[in-house]
Amino acid sequence: MIHLQNINKYIDSRFQRVFILKEIELTIEQGDFVTLMGPSGVGKSTLLNIIGLLDEDYEGEYTFEGKSIKAMKDRQRSALHKSEFGYIFQAYHLIDELTVYENIETPLLYRNVSSAERKSIIAELLDRFNMVAKKDLFPEQLSGGQQQLVGVARAIAGKPKVLLADEPTGNLHSAQAKEIMEVFQELNREGTTIIQATHSRENADYGHRLIEMMDGKIYQEVSI
């Protein structure tokens, strides 16, 4: 499904070239649950951004379902981004001005989903994450774990094929983290491809593949 070939990303300073990603070769199949691990600054987030079509400033070949990303027009790329990817952030990044319900609704609005359909999708998600009672609250009224649940709900509302999660549990304590990871596992079982970046070995255990990164390179891959 996702095929990365010789991906390089670097910053040129006056005397030297600093690589953020170097010679990345990676293939991810549909239904994979991949964990990117490694210390801070190793390039995990950058790699996620490239995969998620948020960063176009790199060298190398990226194909998604056989189609070359670089060859696509902006419009196609943005359509692909909209339909296939969902994002979850470490700092949740909910919109403060919107209620739980409206936060989940936002991606659906941008996908031109009809009002009736939106209602049923959101109702289903709220139900699934036990947040029906909280649907009219604003993010600041929720605990971190609950906020991240909203983040997850929002990410999967558009029914993406790929879920990208950058340190999804970094701001949570262990019980909350466990809950989120169990949700991930369940989503994966239902067929969603998940790629997460994390420091935590425990989180990695929920996935199938563990890719360890070091200095912008893939250091080794472990199957779980």
């Binding site: 943005s78 981004h81 558009g158």
Partner: peptide, 16 residues
């Protein structure tokens, strides 16, 4: 800018 960034990540097009 945070709000705008988020919306874009969630698929907002520039026109929207």
């Amino acid at each position: 800018n945070k709000e705008v960034g988020l919306r874009k990540v969630m698929g907002a097009e520039r026109g929207q």
